[in-house]
Design a protein around this nucleic acid. Sequence first.
DNA 1: GCTCCCATGTAACCGGTTACATGATTGG
DNA 2: CCAATCATGTAACCGGTTACATGGGAGC
Lengths: 181, 181
Amino acid sequence: MSLKHAILSMVISQPKSGYDIAKEFSGSVNFYWGASHQQIYKTLAELENNQWLAVEGIAQLGKPNKKNYSITAKGREELLLWVEQPSKKPSAKNILLVKLLTLEEVGKDVLIKVLNDHQLKAEQNLKTYQNIEEEFFSNGVEDIKELYYVSKYLSLRYGINHAKGELLWLEETLQVLEGRK
Amino acid sequence: MSLKHAILSMVISQPKSGYDIAKEFSGSVNFYWGASHQQIYKTLAELENNQWLAVEGIAQLGKPNKKNYSITAKGREELLLWVEQPSKKPSAKNILLVKLLTLEEVGKDVLIKVLNDHQLKAEQNLKTYQNIEEEFFSNGVEDIKELYYVSKYLSLRYGINHAKGELLWLEETLQVLEGRK
DNA sequence: GCTCCCATGTAACCGGTTACATGATTGG
DNA sequence: CCAATCATGTAACCGGTTACATGGGAGC
C-alpha cells in the first residue's frame, strides 16, 4: 500500500499529528489521495511500530493532548526505496463504462441522463480547480518554482487536465449515444 | 461494490461461466475494470445466493464441467436501479503525485527518472490502444453505432483520451521539474 | 515430457469503509 | 444553547490480493 508512504511524505518537512494529516487529506491533497481519520490513526500506529516514524506526546492547554509524529532515518531510507521503485498503477475502474454495458437492457435515455449528471459534476469540479489556480497566482505566488508550491501546483494541474479529459470523453460519448436511434 | 453489477452487465446478453467472465476481464474490459478469477467465483456465488443470477451446470466432453450463469428478473431490476443511481467516483489515487511530495527529500533527478519511466509506459499504452482502434475500423466495423460495438468502442476512446491526458500532464510536470535548479 | 488451455475453487491476509465512542473549548 | 473545532481511537465488515490446490486434454 502507499498510504504509508503518502504519510511519510507528508511529515518529511515537519512533524505532524494524525489530526493534521487528516486535515491535509481533506484539503488539496484530496485531489489525488484520500484517507479517513480511522485509517490514518491505524496506519500511524503501524508506522511507529516499524520505526519509520517517531512519536512525541504533546500536552496542550485548553485542547486535547496530541501526538506529533516525525520521520526517522529508517523511514527516510524506506521512502527513497519506494520512490525509486516502479509504481504499478492500480487497475483503473470506471463505473460509467460498466453502466454503458447495460445499454441494451436499460435503453439509451437512462444512460444519457446518467452521463449528463456526470458531465455537470465534472464541469463543477473543473471550475473549482480553476478558481483555486487563479487564487494561486493572484496570491503573490508568481514563481511556482518555489519548492513549497511545486507539488501543490502540479496536483492542481493534474486535476484540471483530468477533468478536461473526462469532459471531452463525455461529449464524445453523448454524441455517439444520441446519434443512435 | 460494483463488481457485482459489472458481472450482471456482462451476462445480460448471454449466459456465461466464471471462466468466460475472467477472460473478458483480461481482455478489452480490462481498460476500465479488472478482477481476478478468485474474486469472480466468490462474487458469482454471492450473486446466485441473492438470486440475481441463476446457474446451470454443464457437463462437457473432454473438458471440465462448467457452470453457466444467466441473469434473473430480480437481477435485471437490481441492475436498472443501480444504473440510475448517481455513481460516486472512487477517490482517485495518484502515486506519482505522492512521489512528487518527496521532492525535497529525494531530489529532482530521482523524480525525473520516475516520471520518464512512467511516460514511456503511457506512450506504449497509447500506441496499443490506437492499434486496437485501427483494427476496429479496418475489420469491417464501419458503423460503430451497431449496438454490439458501442461500448467496446467507447471504452477504447476512454483509454485513448486518458493516456493522452496523462502524457500532457507528464510533459508539463517534467518541464516544471527540469526548470528547477 | 512440457506447456498451455480449460475450469473451479479454499484460506489467509490486507487495506479501506462504516458505525460507534468520548470529551473539552471556542464562537455565534 | 448549539455547532464547530480539536483530538484520538475501537470494532465489525467488505472488497480485493496472494498463495495454494486440483486435474484432464491438446499440441509441440
